[in-house]
Design a binder for these strands. Structure first.
Lengths: 114, 114
DNA sequence: TTGACATATATAGATTGTCGATATATAATG
DNA sequence: CATTATATATCGACAATCTATATATGTCAA
């Protein structure tokens, strides 16, 4: 599957925050969830995700805490903040504006209805 | 208007080719058309467009020819090639795949129907 | 028990696409 | 005559992602 990576640019943060809106998650889990939910279209790489999570934490859109799993493996969970919720909400509006604009140009009423 | 520029990444080529599918155009005209059709969401910059057009010409997705307008100003028109048509068709499929995947993650049936 | 693979996080360097700034030149407008 | 719009072009900067690499532990099969 997978698509031209440059299409993904700009939407990754939105998608990660959306996952965290549903439940706290650790990095590796996000990669799997995103892959599963998108039916293998998004194959987010660890080298993309971890730096991104650190950035989101710096911006206070997420917070993190460590938790030990059954198998004694330590996982770093991320949780969305109030600021993160607000940010996600804005990004979703931008996303709607964006796809509407693309579809206006494509003249493709079948692609989206904003 | 205008949105986060990183969202635009990857879709610009598709939009330009789409414009050329409707009619031959010169660079400056494409900027205006794109702005108009997208209701001012896409404010494509000359510094983005011209290098892109040169790349598309190298890839043989478009060809160009010069034409003198009424006011004696010389314009460089671009025309989509057969290869360009094929490429656009593929890109549109990718676009559909992409927005479906994003909407699968967002769980937003209202954003698109692929 | 050892080697391979999945899990889990992390960083460095390369690549790509867009932008702002700058340059040039002509036409139209005040 | 000066400013703005038209029209094309290039360069350096920047942001986001990727590949490659590193580290370490758990699981499973040969």
């Amino acid at each position: 599957m997978a698509i031209d990576k440059s299409l993904v640019t700009g939407s990754t943060t939105m998608l990660i925050l959306k996952l965290l809106e549903e439940a706290d998650m650790y990095g590796y889990q996000m990669i799997e969830e995103l892959n599963k939910k998108s039916k293998n279209v998004f194959e987010l790489k660890a080298g993309t995700l971890y730096p991104l999570l650190h950035t989101l934490e710096q911006k206070e859109l997420v917070t993190s805490y460590e938790q030990t799993a059954d198998n004694a493996r330590v996982r770093k969970y991320y949780s969305i903040t109030k600021k993160g919720h607000k940010y996600l909400c804005d990004k979703k509006e931008e996303w709607k504006t964006f796809i509407s604009a693309v579809n206006d140009v494509l003249g493709a009423a079948n692609y989206a209805t904003a």
